[in-house]
Design a protein around this nucleic acid. Structure first.
Lengths: 210, 210
DNA sequence: GTACTATCCCCCAGGTCGGGGGGTTTTTAA
DNA sequence: TTAAAAACCCCCCGACCTGGGGGATAGTAC
């Protein structure tokens, strides 16, 4: 097997025991080569471009720049590389931020080395390596609240409001009168127990009504 | 193995060849039982509650109510059941709508029966069964545009605008003057080549700048 | 040094916002 | 069938926001 067929892996992880353990296990696996490992983003920054890894395993809890912020910078330094986050704790906000910054996967550290390896293979073959619990979390961010107190029309209007549209625009789009929009808005405020557009939009997002 | 240990599966699929093939293959697998199969949502509606499946395999292209809309109704009829969509084509919009309606997974029909079975097991064990290409699609909806033309400040302000906040509120929150907010907004409009809040927010969402 | 950014300031006309008030008709559920 | 909810329509008001124009200053990045 030639070098170019090997999956090139870089590890950024401050716990040196973990780092070397992963490195040794992954490197000894046929088909994988660990091209580099670092204990912080700062340490990796100068060389990661030349390392040209296929996959970067990136710890969340790093000294210096956090893993979540490092994603953005790594994506610039080596755009071809796919970044997989490693973490012990799964905080919803962190997961979503890492993903929005460009990470492709998210693994908790309690997984077996076999799963780790198959996750790396998943990345390379076009999939998404997510631990089960994290995948559920991600999918649930899509789920709308099925017990919405709002009627369909009210939801529709609130959605248009959340896009920055005013009464006039909403009225045009729905072919109803501006005053009608207004009374719908009143009813929305009543149900959501709020008193302004901003509050309504925020509450609706919190309750996943849109 | 007792009944309660079996994974109860219902299939809703209008192609009767596919339906019976899936049913036979899944039913013959140890650990699985196909409790019912229907060729439309309408046909399933009366009985699905009593079927009490763990997993519903739901075709997208159904006669009558589409699979995507059926998700919402099925979730009411049998809230305990997890719904996995089946489809030949993967339209981004359809995927996202099905998920927001409450589906937990999305499989393309080109997968092997083994993958189908392991996907069902994945659902029951708390994971998310998504075909690789669809998982990528879903994750990419999270990715922000790394080539944003906007500065951080501008992005920040646009984000607050998208939450329905006005100049005053934004000024307070960022501890800057309302007039400063205004000139930031002007610059945002210049860069995005738009002339209003609504257009800016829509363009920003299209370009994934928020 | 030049370009860009972020900050601040003024004026204006027109629209929107939220708070009141008053209704009707149709649909849905009890 | 009866009542409640939803969807629709109309008027008044003062305060605020909007987008258009015109400026200025300071700091940073290349």
């Amino acid at each position: 097997m030639k070098d170019k067929d090997l999956i090139r892996v870089t590890i950024i992880e401050d716990d040196h025991v973990l780092r070397e353990t992963y490195a040794a296990l992954i490197d000894s696996e046929p088909g994988f080569i660990v091209v580099s490992s670092y204990n912080s983003y700062e340490q990796s920054a100068a060389e990661i471009g030349a390392d040209d890894p296929d996959v970067i395993l990136l710890d969340i809890e790093l000294p210096g720049l956090s893993g979540i912020e490092a994603v953005t910078h790594l994506k610039q330094l080596t755009p071809r590389s796919q970044i997989v986050m490693l973490t012990v704790h799964q905080f919803e906000e962190g997961v979503l931020k890492a993903l929005s910054n460009g990470a492709i996967g998210y693994l908790t550290k309690d997984i077996s080395i076999e799963k780790m390896l198959s996750s790396i293979r998943t990345v390379v073959s076009g999939g998404v390596p997510l631990s089960d619990n994290i995948a559920r979390m991600v999918i649930q961010t899509f789920h709308k609240n099925p017990n919405s107190p709002l009627s369909e029309r009210q939801t529709e209007i609130l959605k248009l409001m959340s896009q920055g549209k005013g009464r006039g625009e909403i009225a045009n789009e729905l072919n109803i009168d501006g005053e009608t929009v207004k009374s719908h808005v009143k009813n929305i405020y009543l149900k959501l127990e709020v008193g302004s557009k901003v509050e309504a939009i925020q509450k609706a997002k919190a309750l996943k009504l849109l």
